[in-house]
C-alpha cells in the first residue's frame, strides 16, 4: 500500500459535482502536482486531504491509517495557502513556532527548530518582524517554514506562488523543490501553471471537470498526453483541422500530408502538433510539409515563435534563436515540416 491512498473520492455541492472517482496513490517523499484549470476540482481534492472538506464518499488513508473523517487539527498535515494566511498578530518567529507550541514542544526545542526553519528559508534575521513588514515572497517563505516546523506527514501547497510576480515565483519554485528534496517530505502541490507543475513534480495529476485525465511523470504528460485536453493544457499546441482523402491522407487548404494512420475518406480530423516539433523550410525530405505564409514573428528570448497561416488556419512554429540565421519575414511564403509521427490525430 502506498503512503497516501486516495480512493474513489467524491465531493459535490448540491447538483454540482466538484470531484468524482478520484483514485491516487502517492509514495512517501514523492512530489505530486494537481494540474488543471479553474473549477477542475484540484483545490477541493487538496482540501479533502487537509480535512477542510468532507468527501461524500471514498477514503483517504495516510500511512495505513484511515483519516477520511479525522478533524484537520489531528491529521498532522501541513498546508501552505495561496494568500499566506500568516497570523498578523504574531511575529515571524511566533508564526513558525505556533504549531510546535500547540504540540507542547519544550521551549528550547521550539527556539532551535524556529531558527533552523528560518535559516532554511533564508529569513534568519526576520524572526522579530511582523508579517506586514515582509514582502509577498518573504511572507510565503514564512508560511512554508511554519507549515514545515511541526514535521507534518504530508505538505500541501495550494497555488502558493500565484500571488507573486514572475521573477520571485521562479526563484521560490526552485527553493520549494530544494527544500522538499532535502527534507524528503511527501508533497502535494496544486497549480494551474503547467510550467510550475512540469518543473517541480515527480508526477503530475492532470484534472478536468472533477476527474483525473492523466497521471504521469512530467515527460509522460508532455510527450504522451492521454487526451487532446491534456495535450492542450500541458505545453503549447497548434491544431490543424483537415479532411481524410480517398487514399487515407490528411487534406488541408488544398494540400495533403500523410498522417500516422490512414484516415477514413471525408472524415473531419484534427492534427495537434507541438510548436517545437515543427521546422520552417526543412531540408529533410522525409518530413511531411505544408506551404503557408508568415503571419507574425515573436521573439521570446531563447525561442522565436512564428505564426504560419495555412489556408485559414494558423500554426505556431518554435525555433531556438540563432543570431546567425535571419528571422522569417512577415508575409513571406514558408514550408512547415514535421515528422508524421509527431502530434495527435483525432
Amino acid at each position: 500500500m502506498a503512503y497516501l491512498e486516495l480512493a474513489k473520492l467524491r465531493k459535490s455541492w448540491g447538483a454540482h459535482v466538484a470531484v468524482e472517482g478520484f483514485d491516487l496513490s502517492v509514495e512517501e517523499g514523492e512530489f505530486v502536482s494537481f494540474l488543471g484549470g479553474s473549477g477542475c476540482g484540484k483545490t477541493t481534492t487538496l482540501r479533502m486531504v487537509a480535512g477542510f472538506e468532507s468527501p461524500d464518499s471514498g477514503s483517504i488513508v495516510l500511512g495505513g491509517e484511515d483519516i477520511t473523517r479525522k478533524s484537520p487539527n489531528r491529521r498532522n498535515i501541513g498546508m501552505v495557502f495561496q494568500n499566506y494566511a500568516l497570523f498578523p498578530n504574531l511575529t515571524v518567529a511566533q508564526n513558525v513556532a505556533f504549531g510546535l507550541r500547540v504540540r507542547r514542544v519544550p521551549r528550547a526545542e521550539v527556539a532551535r527548530r524556529v531558527d533552523e526553519l528560518l535559516g532554511l528559508v533564508h529569513l534568519a534575521d526576520f524572526g522579530g518582524r511582523y508579517p506586514h513588514n515582509l514582502s509577498g515572497g518573504q511572507q510565503q517563505r514564512v508560511a512554508l517554514a511554519r507549515a514545515l516546523a511541526p514535521r507534518p506527514r504530508v505538505l500541501l501547497l495550494d497555488e502558493p506562488l500565484s500571488a507573486l510576480d514572475a521573477r520571485i515565483r521562479q526563484h521560490l519554485r526552485t527553493e520549494i523543490r530544494a527544500l522538499q528534496t532535502a527534507l524528503g517530505i511527501t508533497t502535494i502541490y496544486v497549480t494551474h501553471d503547467q510550467e510550475e507543475a512540469l518543473s517541480l513534480s515527480d508526477r503530475i495529476v492532470v484534472m478536468d471537470k472533477g476527474r483525473i485525465e492523466q497521471v504521469g511523470t512530467p515527460a509522460q504528460v508532455y510527450h504522451e498526453p492521454a487526451s487532446a485536453h491534456v495535450a492542450g493544457f500541458v505545453g503549447h499546441l497548434g491544431v490543424l483541422e483537415g479532411i481524410g482523402t480517398a487514399d487515407g491522407r490528411f487534406s488541408v487548404a488544398d494540400q495533403t500530408v500523410t498522417p500516422p494512420r490512414p484516415l477514413a475518406p471525408g472524415a473531419v480530423t484534427r492534427w495537434s502538433l507541438r510548436p517545437e516539433r515543427l521546422v520552417l523550410d526543412p531540408s529533410d525530405p522525409a518530413l511531411e510539409r505544408l506551404v503557408g505564409q508568415v503571419q507574425s514573428v515573436a521573439f521570446l528570448g531563447s525561442v522565436v515563435r512564428t505564426q504560419v497561416v495555412i489556408g485559414d488556419q494558423v500554426l505556431p512554429v518554435d525555433a531556438f534563436v540563432d543570431p546567425k540565421t535571419p528571422q522569417p519575414r512577415v508575409g513571406a511564403s514558408v514550408v512547415v515540416g514535421w515528422n508524421r509521427h509527431s502530434g495527435w490525430v483525432n
Binding site: 487537509a50 480535512g51 477542510f52 478533524s71 484537520p72 487539527n73 489531528r74 498532522n76 498535515i77 501541513g78 498546508m79 495557502f81 494566511a85 500568516l86 497570523f87 505556533f98 504549531g99 500547540v102 504540540r103 511554519r146 507549515a147 511541526p150 500541501l156
Partner: peptide, 9 residues
C-alpha cells in the same frame, strides 16, 4: 484553517 492545519483546536 491555518490554525487547524498546525494542530490547533
Amino acid at each position: 484553517e491555518a490554525g487547524a492545519s498546525l494542530g490547533a483546536g
